[in-house]
Write a protein that binds this DNA or RNA. Structure first.
Lengths: 111, 111
DNA sequence: TCAACATATAAATACTTATTGATATATTCA
DNA sequence: TGAATATATCAATAAGTATTTATATGTTGA
């Protein structure tokens, strides 16, 4: 049966848990802003707080979530803790989702 | 300023709301199962209920969510209501997320 | 029109989680 | 060691949502 199913379905159906975990991480605007900011390279918590104008506990909370599903790596340097993207491909996902969203909305307006 | 920012960031930062809406839709296993099932083509609600072994109200609820972010199109035929994928590219997103999840977990085991 | 079926909606519950404010922990430097 | 800074954690709250059970709506065929 698994030989018959197209490849896209196979890989996916065996990893629904991983997919939902990653998708959940991407379902918050502040976490997306953090990920996009980290696209420029590793940043300390305080830099993120300053750049995104969010409270420090809130940023720590979101970084914890991102770390939980392994989307960021952590590294201490003196008193600072730096976070960086674990896999830049996540940015491509964001871009693809943006493109899909854009097109779905455009088609809707056509109705 | 927008000319300086890399293209990936530009498109994305202007559509954080769309991205989070789509990602939220993908953050539930039962919704993913529905999307994957719809990869085979349009299906009636009762077929989905039967195939996925979920209660009918639950399936209707999830279909409503998927429709809300335009991931599925709806079509009535007699007493049946058929749902189909609005954009098959969403399946590629699932595949990409599965691949990223797989690799992130594999690397973690290496630590 | 009525019975049977397909689907949607409503109400209730339980669980998750984003956010805030307060506090704890850890590191550096004087 | 102690003060200052960086970050994490905790407790509380509010808001969202997945699921269930019951019911309503809509469609068909007799």
């Amino acid at each position: 049966m698994s030989r018959i199913t197209p490849k896209e379905s196979i890989e996916v159906v065996d990893r629904l848990g991983d997919i939902t975990a990653l998708a959940r991480s991407l379902s918050d605007e502040n976490r997306l802003r953090i990920l996009v900011y980290l696209a420029d390279g590793k940043q300390s918590v305080s830099r993120i707080v300053e750049e995104l104008q969010l409270s420090q506990p809130l940023v720590s909370h979101h970084l914890k979530e991102l770390k939980r599903c392994l989307l960021v790596n952590v590294e201490r340097n003196g008193p600072f803790i730096y976070y960086e993207l674990a896999d830049p491909r996540i940015l491509h996902i964001l871009k693809d989702l943006a493109a899909i969203g854009e097109e779905l909305l455009a088609n809707r307006k056509t109705l």
